[in-house]
Design a protein around this nucleic acid. Structure first.
Length: 433
RNA sequence: GUGGCCUUAGCUCAACCGGCAGAGCAGCGGAUUGUGGUUCCGCAGGUUAUGGGUUCGACCCCCAUAGGCCACCCCA
Protein backbone atom coordinates (compact mmCIF):
# COMPACT_ATOMS: atom_id res chain seq x y z
CA UNK A 1 0.00 0.00 0.00
CA UNK A 2 1.25 3.46 -0.78
CA UNK A 3 2.03 5.59 2.22
CA UNK A 4 -0.33 8.30 1.02
CA UNK A 5 -3.32 8.36 -1.23
CA UNK A 6 -5.70 10.98 -2.60
CA UNK A 7 -8.31 11.93 -0.03
CA UNK A 8 -11.67 10.22 -0.08
CA UNK A 9 -13.86 11.44 -2.88
CA UNK A 10 -10.98 13.07 -4.71
CA UNK A 11 -8.82 11.64 -7.42
CA UNK A 12 -5.85 12.34 -9.59
CA UNK A 13 -6.69 13.12 -13.18
CA UNK A 14 -3.96 11.32 -15.10
CA UNK A 15 -2.96 12.51 -18.55
CA UNK A 16 -5.61 10.75 -20.67
CA UNK A 17 -8.39 11.94 -18.40
CA UNK A 18 -6.98 15.39 -17.86
CA UNK A 19 -6.64 15.82 -21.62
CA UNK A 20 -10.32 14.98 -21.99
CA UNK A 21 -11.22 17.51 -19.35
CA UNK A 22 -9.05 20.13 -21.02
CA UNK A 23 -10.88 19.52 -24.27
CA UNK A 24 -14.24 20.09 -22.57
CA UNK A 25 -12.89 23.21 -20.91
CA UNK A 26 -11.84 24.55 -24.28
CA UNK A 27 -15.24 23.80 -25.82
CA UNK A 28 -16.88 25.51 -22.88
CA UNK A 29 -14.80 28.67 -23.00
CA UNK A 30 -15.15 28.97 -26.79
CA UNK A 31 -18.89 28.59 -26.43
CA UNK A 32 -19.25 31.08 -23.61
CA UNK A 33 -17.19 33.64 -25.51
CA UNK A 34 -19.41 33.29 -28.58
CA UNK A 35 -22.44 34.13 -26.46
CA UNK A 36 -20.76 37.10 -24.88
CA UNK A 37 -19.89 35.62 -21.50
CA UNK A 38 -16.58 36.78 -20.11
CA UNK A 39 -14.46 34.82 -17.70
CA UNK A 40 -14.56 35.53 -14.00
CA UNK A 41 -12.79 33.77 -11.15
CA UNK A 42 -13.94 33.77 -7.56
CA UNK A 43 -12.07 32.15 -4.66
CA UNK A 44 -12.38 28.44 -4.00
CA UNK A 45 -13.70 29.26 -0.55
CA UNK A 46 -15.94 31.90 0.95
CA UNK A 47 -17.36 32.75 4.32
CA UNK A 48 -19.71 29.87 4.90
CA UNK A 49 -22.49 32.41 5.43
CA UNK A 50 -22.36 33.25 1.72
CA UNK A 51 -23.55 29.74 0.96
CA UNK A 52 -25.80 29.41 3.98
CA UNK A 53 -27.64 32.61 3.13
CA UNK A 54 -27.55 32.16 -0.62
CA UNK A 55 -28.28 28.49 -1.07
CA UNK A 56 -30.54 28.18 1.96
CA UNK A 57 -29.96 26.94 5.50
CA UNK A 58 -32.20 23.90 5.22
CA UNK A 59 -30.91 22.55 1.91
CA UNK A 60 -28.90 19.34 1.78
CA UNK A 61 -26.02 21.16 0.16
CA UNK A 62 -25.64 23.40 3.19
CA UNK A 63 -26.82 21.07 5.93
CA UNK A 64 -24.76 18.01 5.18
CA UNK A 65 -22.57 18.63 2.18
CA UNK A 66 -20.79 21.88 2.95
CA UNK A 67 -17.03 21.32 3.01
CA UNK A 68 -16.17 23.34 6.11
CA UNK A 69 -12.67 24.56 6.88
CA UNK A 70 -11.60 24.58 10.49
CA UNK A 71 -10.68 28.10 11.62
CA UNK A 72 -7.10 28.54 12.85
CA UNK A 73 -8.06 31.11 15.44
CA UNK A 74 -10.52 30.61 18.21
CA UNK A 75 -12.81 33.40 17.02
CA UNK A 76 -11.86 33.02 13.37
CA UNK A 77 -14.30 33.33 10.51
CA UNK A 78 -16.02 30.21 9.31
CA UNK A 79 -15.03 29.27 5.78
CA UNK A 80 -16.35 26.71 3.38
CA UNK A 81 -15.15 25.42 0.03
CA UNK A 82 -17.60 26.43 -2.66
CA UNK A 83 -20.24 23.78 -3.38
CA UNK A 84 -21.48 25.65 -6.46
CA UNK A 85 -20.40 28.75 -8.32
CA UNK A 86 -23.44 31.02 -8.28
CA UNK A 87 -23.36 32.26 -4.69
CA UNK A 88 -19.74 33.36 -4.96
CA UNK A 89 -20.27 35.07 -8.28
CA UNK A 90 -23.29 36.94 -6.98
CA UNK A 91 -21.30 37.93 -3.90
CA UNK A 92 -18.66 39.35 -6.25
CA UNK A 93 -21.35 41.13 -8.27
CA UNK A 94 -22.56 42.90 -5.15
CA UNK A 95 -19.10 43.55 -3.71
CA UNK A 96 -17.78 45.17 -6.88
CA UNK A 97 -20.89 47.19 -7.67
CA UNK A 98 -21.48 45.43 -10.94
CA UNK A 99 -24.99 46.83 -10.99
CA UNK A 100 -23.31 49.91 -12.44
CA UNK A 101 -21.96 47.89 -15.35
CA UNK A 102 -23.97 47.50 -18.53
CA UNK A 103 -26.69 44.96 -17.67
CA UNK A 104 -26.89 42.08 -17.82
CA UNK A 105 -23.47 41.12 -16.54
CA UNK A 106 -22.65 37.88 -18.31
CA UNK A 107 -19.83 35.85 -16.81
CA UNK A 108 -18.48 32.33 -17.05
CA UNK A 109 -16.35 30.30 -14.71
CA UNK A 110 -14.86 26.82 -14.89
CA UNK A 111 -13.30 25.07 -11.95
CA UNK A 112 -13.56 22.78 -8.99
CA UNK A 113 -16.52 22.61 -6.65
CA UNK A 114 -16.57 20.73 -3.35
CA UNK A 115 -19.28 18.81 -1.56
CA UNK A 116 -18.81 16.62 1.45
CA UNK A 117 -21.00 13.73 0.23
CA UNK A 118 -20.45 10.08 0.41
CA UNK A 119 -18.64 9.35 -2.86
CA UNK A 120 -19.96 7.15 -5.61
CA UNK A 121 -19.27 6.72 -9.30
CA UNK A 122 -19.78 10.15 -10.87
CA UNK A 123 -20.12 11.76 -7.47
CA UNK A 124 -17.01 13.22 -5.94
CA UNK A 125 -16.09 15.56 -3.15
CA UNK A 126 -14.14 17.61 -5.65
CA UNK A 127 -15.60 17.89 -9.10
CA UNK A 128 -15.30 20.17 -12.12
CA UNK A 129 -18.01 22.45 -13.29
CA UNK A 130 -18.53 24.84 -16.18
CA UNK A 131 -20.86 27.67 -15.34
CA UNK A 132 -22.45 30.72 -16.96
CA UNK A 133 -24.38 33.45 -15.19
CA UNK A 134 -26.40 36.37 -16.60
CA UNK A 135 -27.19 38.84 -13.86
CA UNK A 136 -29.52 41.80 -14.38
CA UNK A 137 -31.89 40.54 -17.06
CA UNK A 138 -35.39 39.46 -15.99
CA UNK A 139 -35.88 37.34 -19.09
CA UNK A 140 -37.60 35.45 -20.56
CA UNK A 141 -35.48 35.60 -23.75
CA UNK A 142 -32.22 35.27 -21.83
CA UNK A 143 -33.61 32.15 -20.14
CA UNK A 144 -34.07 30.55 -23.54
CA UNK A 145 -30.66 31.72 -24.68
CA UNK A 146 -28.95 30.08 -21.73
CA UNK A 147 -30.82 26.82 -22.20
CA UNK A 148 -29.90 26.89 -25.87
CA UNK A 149 -26.27 27.47 -24.89
CA UNK A 150 -26.49 24.46 -22.61
CA UNK A 151 -27.91 22.28 -25.35
CA UNK A 152 -25.19 23.40 -27.72
CA UNK A 153 -22.44 22.52 -25.25
CA UNK A 154 -23.42 18.86 -25.17
CA UNK A 155 -23.64 18.80 -28.95
CA UNK A 156 -20.21 20.38 -29.31
CA UNK A 157 -18.80 17.98 -26.74
CA UNK A 158 -19.99 15.08 -28.86
CA UNK A 159 -22.74 13.81 -26.60
CA UNK A 160 -25.37 12.83 -29.14
CA UNK A 161 -28.64 13.06 -27.26
CA UNK A 162 -29.51 14.67 -23.99
CA UNK A 163 -32.84 15.24 -22.31
CA UNK A 164 -33.58 18.71 -21.03
CA UNK A 165 -36.16 18.79 -18.27
CA UNK A 166 -37.92 22.14 -17.91
CA UNK A 167 -40.20 23.60 -15.28
CA UNK A 168 -41.22 26.84 -13.67
CA UNK A 169 -41.26 26.83 -9.91
CA UNK A 170 -42.94 30.20 -9.46
CA UNK A 171 -41.79 33.12 -7.36
CA UNK A 172 -42.42 34.69 -3.98
CA UNK A 173 -45.91 35.65 -5.13
CA UNK A 174 -47.25 32.24 -6.08
CA UNK A 175 -44.91 29.63 -4.64
CA UNK A 176 -45.75 30.01 -0.93
CA UNK A 177 -49.42 29.48 -1.66
CA UNK A 178 -48.61 26.48 -3.80
CA UNK A 179 -46.40 24.93 -1.13
CA UNK A 180 -49.20 25.42 1.35
CA UNK A 181 -51.69 23.73 -0.95
CA UNK A 182 -49.27 20.88 -1.64
CA UNK A 183 -48.57 20.36 2.06
CA UNK A 184 -52.27 20.29 2.76
CA UNK A 185 -52.71 17.68 0.07
CA UNK A 186 -50.04 15.44 1.58
CA UNK A 187 -51.39 15.97 5.08
CA UNK A 188 -54.79 14.84 3.88
CA UNK A 189 -53.14 11.58 2.82
CA UNK A 190 -50.68 11.35 5.68
CA UNK A 191 -51.71 7.75 6.32
CA UNK A 192 -50.25 6.75 2.96
CA UNK A 193 -46.90 8.38 3.65
CA UNK A 194 -43.97 6.34 4.94
CA UNK A 195 -42.38 7.78 8.09
CA UNK A 196 -39.34 9.10 6.25
CA UNK A 197 -41.49 11.08 3.88
CA UNK A 198 -43.62 12.42 6.71
CA UNK A 199 -40.56 13.97 8.25
CA UNK A 200 -39.65 15.56 4.96
CA UNK A 201 -43.12 16.98 4.59
CA UNK A 202 -42.43 19.39 7.42
CA UNK A 203 -39.03 20.51 6.19
CA UNK A 204 -39.16 20.41 2.40
CA UNK A 205 -42.58 19.52 1.04
CA UNK A 206 -41.48 20.16 -2.54
CA UNK A 207 -38.99 17.32 -2.24
CA UNK A 208 -41.82 14.81 -2.00
CA UNK A 209 -42.54 15.54 -5.65
CA UNK A 210 -39.47 13.69 -6.87
CA UNK A 211 -39.65 10.94 -4.26
CA UNK A 212 -38.92 7.43 -5.48
CA UNK A 213 -41.21 5.80 -2.96
CA UNK A 214 -44.00 4.00 -4.80
CA UNK A 215 -46.72 5.17 -2.47
CA UNK A 216 -45.62 8.76 -2.89
CA UNK A 217 -45.37 8.38 -6.64
CA UNK A 218 -48.97 7.17 -6.63
CA UNK A 219 -50.00 10.12 -4.51
CA UNK A 220 -48.17 12.53 -6.77
CA UNK A 221 -50.28 11.60 -9.76
CA UNK A 222 -53.13 13.59 -8.28
CA UNK A 223 -51.08 16.20 -6.45
CA UNK A 224 -51.51 19.86 -7.36
CA UNK A 225 -48.92 20.98 -9.90
CA UNK A 226 -47.00 24.20 -9.65
CA UNK A 227 -47.50 24.93 -13.33
CA UNK A 228 -51.25 25.10 -12.71
CA UNK A 229 -50.79 27.47 -9.79
CA UNK A 230 -48.40 30.04 -11.22
CA UNK A 231 -49.35 33.66 -10.80
CA UNK A 232 -50.11 35.59 -13.99
CA UNK A 233 -46.64 37.08 -14.21
CA UNK A 234 -44.88 33.73 -13.73
CA UNK A 235 -47.23 31.98 -16.13
CA UNK A 236 -46.61 34.59 -18.80
CA UNK A 237 -42.85 34.35 -18.22
CA UNK A 238 -42.91 30.58 -18.49
CA UNK A 239 -44.97 30.66 -21.66
CA UNK A 240 -42.59 33.17 -23.18
CA UNK A 241 -39.53 31.06 -22.30
CA UNK A 242 -41.11 28.17 -24.13
CA UNK A 243 -41.98 30.28 -27.15
CA UNK A 244 -38.39 31.48 -27.34
CA UNK A 245 -37.04 27.96 -26.96
CA UNK A 246 -39.24 26.82 -29.79
CA UNK A 247 -37.99 29.69 -31.92
CA UNK A 248 -34.39 28.59 -31.56
CA UNK A 249 -35.21 24.93 -31.99
CA UNK A 250 -34.38 23.63 -28.55
CA UNK A 251 -36.21 20.46 -27.63
CA UNK A 252 -37.12 19.89 -24.02
CA UNK A 253 -39.45 17.92 -21.84
CA UNK A 254 -41.83 19.58 -19.43
CA UNK A 255 -41.41 18.20 -15.93
CA UNK A 256 -43.83 19.76 -13.44
CA UNK A 257 -42.27 17.71 -10.66
CA UNK A 258 -38.81 19.14 -11.21
CA UNK A 259 -37.67 20.96 -8.10
CA UNK A 260 -34.13 22.07 -7.51
CA UNK A 261 -32.08 21.53 -4.41
CA UNK A 262 -31.10 25.11 -3.86
CA UNK A 263 -33.48 27.61 -2.30
CA UNK A 264 -32.58 30.54 -4.49
CA UNK A 265 -34.23 29.32 -7.66
CA UNK A 266 -37.32 31.10 -8.96
CA UNK A 267 -39.38 30.61 -12.10
CA UNK A 268 -37.31 28.86 -14.76
CA UNK A 269 -35.65 25.65 -13.58
CA UNK A 270 -34.07 22.98 -15.76
CA UNK A 271 -31.89 19.91 -15.57
CA UNK A 272 -30.04 17.93 -18.21
CA UNK A 273 -29.62 14.16 -18.38
CA UNK A 274 -27.91 11.90 -20.87
CA UNK A 275 -30.43 10.34 -23.24
CA UNK A 276 -32.24 7.52 -21.53
CA UNK A 277 -31.24 7.50 -17.89
CA UNK A 278 -32.61 10.04 -15.50
CA UNK A 279 -32.22 10.05 -11.77
CA UNK A 280 -29.43 8.85 -9.48
CA UNK A 281 -26.28 10.83 -9.95
CA UNK A 282 -26.64 11.01 -13.70
CA UNK A 283 -27.59 14.67 -14.04
CA UNK A 284 -25.03 16.32 -16.27
CA UNK A 285 -26.21 19.89 -15.89
CA UNK A 286 -28.75 22.15 -14.35
CA UNK A 287 -29.68 25.72 -13.82
CA UNK A 288 -32.37 28.25 -13.40
CA UNK A 289 -33.43 31.71 -12.48
CA UNK A 290 -32.62 33.26 -9.11
CA UNK A 291 -34.38 36.59 -8.97
CA UNK A 292 -34.03 37.02 -5.23
CA UNK A 293 -30.42 36.01 -4.71
CA UNK A 294 -28.66 39.32 -5.29
CA UNK A 295 -30.88 40.98 -2.72
CA UNK A 296 -30.40 38.09 -0.33
CA UNK A 297 -26.64 38.65 -0.46
CA UNK A 298 -26.96 42.36 0.23
CA UNK A 299 -27.45 43.90 -3.21
CA UNK A 300 -30.35 45.73 -4.78
CA UNK A 301 -33.18 43.57 -6.09
CA UNK A 302 -31.73 42.15 -9.29
CA UNK A 303 -32.85 39.23 -11.44
CA UNK A 304 -30.42 36.57 -12.60
CA UNK A 305 -30.17 33.23 -14.28
CA UNK A 306 -27.41 30.68 -14.54
CA UNK A 307 -26.43 27.25 -15.72
CA UNK A 308 -23.82 24.86 -14.43
CA UNK A 309 -22.72 21.54 -15.78
CA UNK A 310 -20.58 18.76 -14.44
CA UNK A 311 -17.56 18.28 -16.65
CA UNK A 312 -16.66 15.03 -14.84
CA UNK A 313 -20.05 13.61 -15.58
CA UNK A 314 -20.00 14.67 -19.21
CA UNK A 315 -16.69 12.87 -19.50
CA UNK A 316 -18.25 9.85 -17.85
CA UNK A 317 -21.32 9.99 -20.09
CA UNK A 318 -19.10 10.21 -23.17
CA UNK A 319 -17.33 7.11 -21.96
CA UNK A 320 -20.45 5.05 -21.29
CA UNK A 321 -21.90 6.17 -24.62
CA UNK A 322 -18.79 4.63 -26.15
CA UNK A 323 -17.64 7.89 -27.66
CA UNK A 324 -13.90 7.77 -27.97
CA UNK A 325 -12.03 10.85 -26.88
CA UNK A 326 -10.22 12.61 -29.66
CA UNK A 327 -6.67 11.30 -29.81
CA UNK A 328 -3.82 13.51 -28.81
CA UNK A 329 -2.02 15.02 -31.77
CA UNK A 330 0.96 12.90 -32.68
CA UNK A 331 4.38 14.39 -32.32
CA UNK A 332 5.87 14.94 -35.74
CA UNK A 333 9.46 14.50 -34.84
CA UNK A 334 11.53 12.69 -32.34
CA UNK A 335 15.18 13.31 -32.35
CA UNK A 336 17.22 10.20 -31.89
CA UNK A 337 20.92 9.78 -32.14
CA UNK A 338 23.20 6.82 -32.42
CA UNK A 339 25.89 8.49 -30.47
CA UNK A 340 24.94 7.77 -26.89
CA UNK A 341 26.49 10.88 -25.50
CA UNK A 342 25.70 13.61 -28.01
CA UNK A 343 22.79 15.06 -26.08
CA UNK A 344 24.00 18.53 -26.97
CA UNK A 345 23.21 18.07 -30.65
CA UNK A 346 19.92 16.37 -29.92
CA UNK A 347 18.86 19.17 -27.62
CA UNK A 348 20.02 21.83 -30.08
CA UNK A 349 18.10 20.34 -33.01
CA UNK A 350 14.96 19.71 -30.95
CA UNK A 351 15.09 23.27 -29.65
CA UNK A 352 15.41 24.62 -33.17
CA UNK A 353 12.44 22.58 -34.39
CA UNK A 354 10.26 23.69 -31.50
CA UNK A 355 11.25 27.26 -32.26
CA UNK A 356 9.85 26.65 -35.75
CA UNK A 357 6.57 25.50 -34.21
CA UNK A 358 7.12 21.78 -34.66
CA UNK A 359 6.18 19.29 -31.97
CA UNK A 360 9.53 17.70 -31.22
CA UNK A 361 10.23 15.21 -28.49
CA UNK A 362 13.88 14.59 -27.90
CA UNK A 363 15.36 11.30 -26.74
CA UNK A 364 17.77 12.42 -24.08
CA UNK A 365 18.51 9.06 -22.55
CA UNK A 366 21.27 6.79 -23.76
CA UNK A 367 19.21 3.90 -25.04
CA UNK A 368 20.37 2.24 -28.18
CA UNK A 369 19.00 3.39 -31.50
CA UNK A 370 16.64 0.47 -31.95
CA UNK A 371 14.98 1.12 -28.61
CA UNK A 372 14.66 4.79 -29.37
CA UNK A 373 12.93 4.12 -32.67
CA UNK A 374 10.71 1.57 -30.99
CA UNK A 375 9.65 4.08 -28.38
CA UNK A 376 9.13 6.77 -31.02
CA UNK A 377 6.92 4.47 -33.07
CA UNK A 378 4.87 3.46 -30.07
CA UNK A 379 4.55 7.12 -29.18
CA UNK A 380 2.81 7.61 -32.51
CA UNK A 381 5.48 9.84 -33.98
CA UNK A 382 5.30 10.26 -37.74
CA UNK A 383 8.91 11.15 -38.26
CA UNK A 384 12.22 10.56 -36.62
CA UNK A 385 15.33 12.61 -37.00
CA UNK A 386 18.38 10.40 -36.73
CA UNK A 387 21.66 11.98 -35.82
CA UNK A 388 24.72 10.05 -36.81
CA UNK A 389 27.95 10.15 -38.74
CA UNK A 390 26.39 12.37 -41.45
CA UNK A 391 26.46 15.16 -38.92
CA UNK A 392 30.09 15.68 -39.87
CA UNK A 393 28.97 17.28 -43.14
CA UNK A 394 25.89 18.88 -41.61
CA UNK A 395 23.30 16.23 -42.38
CA UNK A 396 20.87 14.06 -40.46
CA UNK A 397 18.53 11.29 -41.56
CA UNK A 398 14.87 12.22 -41.79
CA UNK A 399 12.93 9.01 -41.41
CA UNK A 400 9.25 8.51 -42.19
CA UNK A 401 8.22 6.07 -39.49
CA UNK A 402 5.09 4.93 -41.26
CA UNK A 403 6.56 4.44 -44.71
CA UNK A 404 9.81 3.10 -43.33
CA UNK A 405 11.83 5.25 -45.68
CA UNK A 406 14.45 7.85 -44.93
CA UNK A 407 16.73 10.33 -46.66
CA UNK A 408 19.55 12.62 -45.63
CA UNK A 409 18.57 16.22 -44.97
CA UNK A 410 20.82 19.12 -44.08
CA UNK A 411 20.38 20.41 -40.57
CA UNK A 412 19.80 23.91 -41.88
CA UNK A 413 16.81 22.84 -43.94
CA UNK A 414 15.43 20.31 -41.46
CA UNK A 415 12.61 22.46 -40.08
CA UNK A 416 11.48 23.42 -43.58
CA UNK A 417 11.60 19.83 -44.77
CA UNK A 418 9.65 18.60 -41.78
CA UNK A 419 6.97 21.18 -42.27
CA UNK A 420 6.54 20.17 -45.88
CA UNK A 421 6.58 16.47 -45.02
CA UNK A 422 4.03 16.97 -42.28
CA UNK A 423 1.73 18.80 -44.63
CA UNK A 424 1.79 16.10 -47.27
CA UNK A 425 1.40 13.56 -44.51
CA UNK A 426 -1.82 15.20 -43.39
CA UNK A 427 -3.04 15.21 -46.99
CA UNK A 428 -2.36 11.53 -47.17
CA UNK A 429 -4.37 10.95 -44.05
CA UNK A 430 -7.27 12.97 -45.39
CA UNK A 431 -7.33 10.85 -48.53
CA UNK A 432 -7.39 7.67 -46.49
CA UNK A 433 -10.48 8.87 -44.67
C1' G B 1 -25.69 10.52 7.11
C1' U B 2 -28.39 5.04 6.67
C1' G B 3 -28.22 -0.05 4.57
C1' G B 4 -25.67 -3.66 1.43
C1' C B 5 -21.55 -5.72 -1.75
C1' C B 6 -16.38 -5.57 -2.79
C1' U B 7 -10.60 -4.95 -2.08
C1' U B 8 -4.63 -10.35 -4.50
C1' A B 9 1.63 -7.05 -8.89
C1' G B 10 0.89 -0.39 -12.18
C1' C B 11 -3.97 -2.61 -14.89
C1' U B 12 -7.42 -7.03 -15.69
C1' C B 13 -7.83 -11.41 -13.04
C1' A B 14 -6.36 -16.82 -11.16
C1' A B 15 -4.90 -19.74 -6.67
C1' C B 16 -9.40 -27.04 -4.88
C1' C B 17 -12.15 -27.99 1.38
C1' G B 18 -7.80 -23.45 5.41
C1' G B 19 -1.85 -26.34 3.23
C1' C B 20 4.74 -23.37 -0.87
C1' A B 21 0.81 -16.49 -4.09
C1' G B 22 0.45 -17.23 -10.31
C1' A B 23 -0.87 -15.57 -15.48
C1' G B 24 -1.98 -11.96 -19.30
C1' C B 25 -1.25 -6.85 -20.40
C1' A B 26 1.81 -2.59 -19.35
C1' G B 27 7.25 -1.35 -17.93
C1' C B 28 12.58 -2.35 -18.49
C1' G B 29 16.52 -5.27 -20.82
C1' G B 30 18.38 -8.89 -24.49
C1' A B 31 18.07 -11.80 -29.42
C1' U B 32 26.41 -11.21 -32.10
C1' U B 33 26.50 -3.49 -30.19
C1' G B 34 23.42 2.59 -36.99
C1' U B 35 17.13 1.29 -37.78
C1' G B 36 11.20 0.63 -34.97
C1' G B 37 5.40 -1.19 -33.40
C1' U B 38 5.09 -8.25 -34.95
C1' U B 39 7.90 -12.59 -32.72
C1' C B 40 11.15 -15.10 -29.05
C1' C B 41 13.86 -14.93 -24.29
C1' G B 42 14.73 -12.66 -19.70
C1' C B 43 14.30 -9.04 -15.51
C1' A B 44 11.68 -6.40 -12.13
C1' G B 45 7.20 -5.82 -9.69
C1' G B 46 3.55 -8.64 -3.32
C1' U B 47 3.86 -7.79 4.51
C1' U B 48 -2.80 -10.76 -0.50
C1' A B 49 -5.93 -2.71 1.52
C1' U B 50 -4.52 -1.84 6.97
C1' G B 51 -4.71 -3.58 12.20
C1' G B 52 -6.21 -7.36 15.37
C1' G B 53 -8.32 -12.43 16.35
C1' U B 54 -9.23 -17.95 15.54
C1' U B 55 -5.89 -22.07 13.89
C1' C B 56 -0.26 -26.49 13.88
C1' G B 57 -1.05 -23.46 9.54
C1' A B 58 -5.10 -17.79 6.87
C1' C B 59 -5.51 -14.71 0.18
C1' C B 60 -9.50 -18.03 2.19
C1' C B 61 -12.92 -17.93 8.67
C1' C B 62 -14.21 -13.73 12.58
C1' C B 63 -13.89 -8.37 14.27
C1' A B 64 -12.45 -3.33 13.47
C1' U B 65 -10.59 0.59 10.28
C1' A B 66 -9.71 2.68 5.38
C1' G B 67 -10.96 2.97 0.31
C1' G B 68 -14.18 1.71 -3.84
C1' C B 69 -19.00 0.42 -5.66
C1' C B 70 -24.64 -0.09 -5.33
C1' A B 71 -29.20 1.66 -3.23
C1' C B 72 -31.31 5.63 -0.23
C1' C B 73 -30.64 10.92 0.46
C1' C B 74 -29.32 14.53 -2.99
C1' C B 75 -27.26 16.69 -6.73
C1' A B 76 -23.08 18.12 -11.03
Amino acid sequence: MPMFRAARGTRDLLPPERVGLARLERIASDLAARYGYRPIETPLFEQSAVFERGIGEVTDVVEKELFLLAPREEDGERWALRPEPTAGIVRAYVQHGMQTWPQPVKVTMTGSMFRYDRPQAGRFRQFWQFDVEAIGDPGPAIDAEIIELAARFYRDAGLPAVTILLNSIGDSVCRPAYIEELSAYYRAHIGDLPPLERARLERAPLRLLDSKDERVIALNAAAPQITDRLCDACAAHFAAVRTHLHAVGVEYQLEPKLVRGLDYYTRTAFEVYPAGATGQQSAIGGGGRYDGLVELLGGRPTPGIGFGLGLDRVLLALGTAGIAPTPEPAPVAVVVGSDPVDTITRLRIATELRGAGIVARAELGNRKLGKQLEAAARDGAHFAVIIGDELADGHVQLRDLEAGTQRPVSVSSLARELERATKSHRHGEAKQL
